[in-house]
Design a protein around this nucleic acid. Structure first.
Length: 264
DNA sequence: GCGACAG
DNA sequence: ATCTTGTCGC
């Protein structure tokens, strides 16, 4: 995994203002339209029936990325899938430089994630991050930041909403339901990316809903880099299995916990 | 000062 | 994110 834009990588030791300035540069470089090397239809968790006739080539490589934490260190895990099959798993343990600050997550977790991505032998066609992409104050969340640095299409999948406003109430919706997340006053227009009340910066997506009681909250999906908000939700939908989180993320999450045991 | 905030 | 037992239900 080589960095196409190493100058935009999160560096330690920057002041808050410098971090925010760097995020604006990341957002200016980010592409929130489809610019994929593969057809979204070719992404799936596998086709037992072998009925997929869309091209001969192997399905795209999708990497799920997540972290677990130790004392002052982060364990970043990456699980790469091809049509639902795990083809590679790598992880890295890195020292943390900053505490968690809403809006500056990529400066805490970005470096450690790049450390893990450097261990990869395969070349993912898509990154799926645990956190926001365009749904961010400066339209440069973790998924956008790392996606831009590597110039790899990426998607942000968050379990809660950082900013923006859902078009409709998100409570108690059926599986598959989705509604746009629009920019609000806390979102800045950056580069060629507007932030008007009409701007869709992501989607609330109900990936799962069990018949029983506890209503499950939706996921908040947003473009990281080189994908539109619409395609981002479509891809997350295609990558969803029997659980709330998309399979790549769920497997990375489990692997992060599993590997963590060896360091504590 | 008030409110609000990914992991 | 993390600290944590039992418990309800498919």
């Amino acid at each position: 995994m080589q960095q196409v834009h190493p100058e935009l990588a999160p560096r330690p030791g920057l002041s808050r203002t410098e971090m925010e300035t760097l995020q604006r540069r990341v957002a200016e470089t980010a592409v929130f339209d489809d610019d994929l090397s593969f057809a979204p239809e070719r992404v799936s968790l596998g086709d037992p029936e072998n009925t997929t006739l869309v091209g001969d080539a192997a399905p795209p490589l999708v990497a799920g990325i997540d972290q677990s934490f130790l004392d002052g260190r982060a364990l970043s895990a990456v699980v790469v899938l091809r049509g639902g099959e795990v083809v590679e798993r790598v992880h890295a343990v890195s020292d943390l430089d900053l505490p968690y600050i809403p809006g500056l997550l990529s400066f805490r977790e970005g470096g450690p994630i790049l450390d893990a991505l450097a261990e990869l032998e395969t070349d993912p066609d898509l990154f799926v991050f645990d956190g926001s992409g365009r749904i961010h104050f400066r339209q440069a969340g973790l998924a956008t930041h790392i996606g831009v640095v590597c110039d790899v299409p990426s998607i942000g999948v968050a379990k809660s909403l950082l900013c923006g406003t859902p078009d409709e109430d998100v409570d108690g919706r059926p599986e598959g339901w989705r509604t746009p997340i629009r920019a609000d006053d806390s979102v800045d227009a950056v580069g060629g990316h507007p932030a008007t009340p009409e701007t869709t910066i992501g989607y609330a997506f109900q990936s799962r809903q069990y018949d029983s009681r506890p209503i499950i909250n939706p996921l908040y999906v947003s473009p990281g880099h080189r994908v539109s908000a619409e395609t981002a939700v479509d891809l997350v939908s295609r990558l969803s299995g029997d659980y709330k989180l998309p399979e790549p993320t769920r497997l990375a999450d489990a692997y992060a916990d599993e590997a963590k045991a060896q360091y504590e």
